[in-house]
Each structure stands twice: as C-alpha cells, then as structure tokens.
C-alpha cells in the first residue's frame, strides 16, 4: 500500500468517525423517543421496507450534493450512502441496546424493525453532519453551490425531511391537529410560509444563494417559498403516511396534521443549505 492510498484510508476512517458523531448528534433525540420504538415494532412492514429503500436513495442524493468526502460520481455517492447507513445502523443498535429498548425477549424481526426505523434519521444525520463537522477542505459541497433548480428543490425536500423527522413520529402531531381550529390552521399556513420566505431570503442576502442580481422578494417568493412550502407539505404528508398517521383519518384531519408537520418541514427546507 502506498503512502498516498494509506492517507486516503485514514481520511475515510476520519470521515466515518465524523459520520458516527453526526448520527448521534442528529438522531439521539429520536433514539430517546418512545414513538420511534413503537413504530419499529408495529409500523406496517411493507411501508417500513419502502422507507429504508427511499432513505438509501435520499442519502445518496444528499451525498451527491454535500456528503462526507469529495466524491467522484454517483456510484461513489451510493457507496458513501451505504457506508452512512451502516454507521447509522450501528449507532442505532448500540443506542437501543444500551437503553434496554431491545432485549433478549424480542424477536429478531422486532429488533430489525426498531433498528431500521431509527437508522433512517441516523443515516441521514451521518451523511449530513459529517459534512458539517468536516474541515472545509474535507467536506464536499461543490455541487450544492452549483445546484440547479431541481437540485435546490431536492435539497429543500431533504432538509424538510431531516428537520421534520425529529417531530414527525410524536403523538403531538395529532394532538396539535385536534386542538387547532380552522382559524389556527390558516394562521399556521401563513406563518409557515412567512418563516420559510424570511429564512430563504435572508440566506440569499448572506450570499448563501448565488442568485441573479435583482431577484427580489416576489421572485424569491414564487421560485423558492411557494415551491419550498409545497415540497415541505409533500414531505410531511409522505412521512405521516409512512407512520400510519393517515390511516382511518378523514381528509380534514389529515390536512391539519400535514400543516402542523409542515411548519418544522418548511423551516428545514429553508435552512437546507445551511444544514445539509
């Protein structure tokens, strides 16, 4: 092994260590949330399997735009995504074993369910935070800076999921939905869109977005705020469906829950460039 390739191995090992730190940093609150264990046990198995597959795709996409090392192409990103998932699964397993959440009385299928559902945010945390924690020359956000409009929307969706996932499993999404009247719901929609717009616009001013000169509030609103809020609502609806929160619920209640989850999702979408 040449010293150059040895250095590459060491760099990758450091990236993995950062990934593990990232998985902990971003997913520990979820490991400590009872609903996550419950979903691991009772969530519809086909939905859970689909969620893992989609998460791997999403992590690959996030790795493409930022990721924990400078990648050479989508194949390299897919490898990184699998590595991030491995880190997420190992960190999850360690956490739930230490917490006594999984024990010998459980079947392998149940343990697999808990690890699978927790490894989704942990894997995302691994790939995201590894980039955040990396020294500027180690991370990879070239493509993020050069992302086109669809890339931007993808990143917004990933940010929405990343931030929204923290609260999505909790029962409070339902409780808040029950408590809100129509007036509250409308106010929440306006507040979510306003928060999204302010964040996106202020990030633009900070130079995080390299946008054409003269793109004012209106253009930002149409291009990013409205589209971003749509993405956030779509992500919210999808996550609620995965967790079975929409089963047996009427359309009005489903809409209210989507709007409730839409608030953290919008903020995640707006901050995607900072967070991812």
């Amino acid at each position: 092994m040449t010293s150059e390739s040895l250095a590459a191995e060491i760099r990758y090992a450091q990236a993995l260590a950062r990934a593990a730190a990232g998985a902990l940093l971003f997913s520990l609150p979820l490991f400590m949330t009872e609903e996550m264990w419950r979903f691991g046990l009772y969530m519809d198995r086909h939905r859970l399997a689909l969620m893992v597959v989609l998460a791997l795709g999403l992590i690959t996409g996030v790795s493409y735009y930022s990721g924990f090392e400078r990648t050479t192409g989508l194949f390299d990103d897919a490898l990184d995504a699998l590595a991030a998932f491995a880190v997420g699964a190992v960190v999850t397993l360690a956490a739930v074993v230490i917490f006594g959440v999984v024990g010998r009385e459980m079947t392998v299928g149940e343990i697999a369910g808990i690890v699978a559902v927790c490894a989704v945010p942990a894997g995302m945390g691994a790939v995201v935070a590894a980039n955040q924690l990396a020294a500027p020359e180690d991370g990879d956000d070239r493509r993020k800076r050069e992302a086109g409009y669809f890339g931007e929307l993808f990143l917004m969706g990933a940010g929405a999921l990343f931030f929204g996932f923290n609260v999505a499993p909790t029962e409070e999404m339902m409780l808040i939905g029950y408590k809100m009247t129509a007036v509250h719901t409308v106010m929440l929609v306006v507040a979510s869109a306003a928060a999204l717009h302010l964040l996106v616009y202020s990030l633009q001013l900070r130079g995080q977005h390299e946008r054409r000169e003269g793109s004012g509030h209106m253009a930002t609103f149409l291009h990013y705020t409205l589209a971003g809020y749509g993405v956030a609502l779509g992500v919210s609806l999808g996550v609620l469906w995965f967790f079975g929160r929409l089963d047996g619920v009427d359309a009005a209640m489903a809409a209210r829950m989507t709007i409730v989850l839409g608030l953290p999702a919008s903020i995640g979408a707006a901050a995607a460039r900072l967070v991812l």
Binding site: E9, Y12, A13, L16, R45, H46, L48, A49, V52, V53, L56, D76, A78, L79, D80, A81, L82, A83, A84, F85, A86, V87, A89, V90, T107, V108, G109, E110, A112, G113, V115, A116, A119
Partner: peptide, 23 residues
C-alpha cells in the same frame, strides 16, 4: 475502507429489509 463500510452497509440494509419483510 469505503468498499468495506459500503459493503457492510449494503449487507445491513439487505438484512434489515429481509427481516422486516419476513416479519
């Protein structure tokens, strides 16, 4: 190391999917 950890991740993902689907 990337091959190794990606391989581990792929195996884990497949194993989890298999266990969940068997369940």
């Amino acid at each position: 190391l990337e091959w190794v950890s990606a391989g581990a991740g792929g195996l884990m993902a497949l194993a989890l999917l298999a266990l969940v689907l068997i369940d």
